[in-house]
Design a protein around this nucleic acid. Sequence first.
DNA 1: GGACAGATCGCCT
DNA 2: GGCGATCTGTCCC
Length: 207
Amino acid sequence: MDLNLACVELAKNLLGKVICRNISGHVVKGMIVETEAYVGPQDRACHTYGGRRTPRNEAMYMKAGTCYVYIIYGIYQCFNISSAEDGAGVLVRAVEPLEGIEVMVKHRGRPEKYRGKGLRDVANGPSKLCIAMGITKHEINKEDLVTSGKIWLEVGKRIEEGEIATSRRIGLRNAGVWGEQHLRFYIRKNEFVSCRRRDHKACGKGE
DNA sequence: GGACAGATCGCCT
DNA sequence: GGCGATCTGTCCC
């Protein structure tokens, strides 16, 4: 699988791909249904804004397909995949559980909450999916998706351009015009996306 | 269904 | 010292 793509291309391309995680023998798989592009030093919302380069964001400067995991709000983690440009990457915001569902539910606690339709809430957010799939900075940051035995990607479902919706990125503050750009991508009719927004559009239309 | 408050700490200035 | 690419529970409609 070719991950050496420009950020926005990678963000769209990852939709439908399957994240596979081997947690000390337990294999867990989830299909990516929602992503956001953080396009590089010019992007005010990106951790590399203005060319910042620190130990934390080093993975953003590594080869395309490198995992960048960081801690947010002191308690949660977010999982990104670096893209071809220096200092750019794609945030994975939601996955549809495919395999090892019991393990995901167990990680998230309160199993009764995730039965039936409730399963949609087990990994429909950037930090929820990290908890569900055992993705931690300690174990996964800087892992190479092509060579790692802990985390890798598999070809899943082919997603056509017409099935992709776009919107502004979620949760940004002080991003100025960069907060307006449609750099969030998700599978339009998928139940496992984190949220719908009024400003959504079909991919390629407008903006 | 939406709005809001609070938790909690690594990282950078 | 202050902030943040979030999540959860609570309150209200």
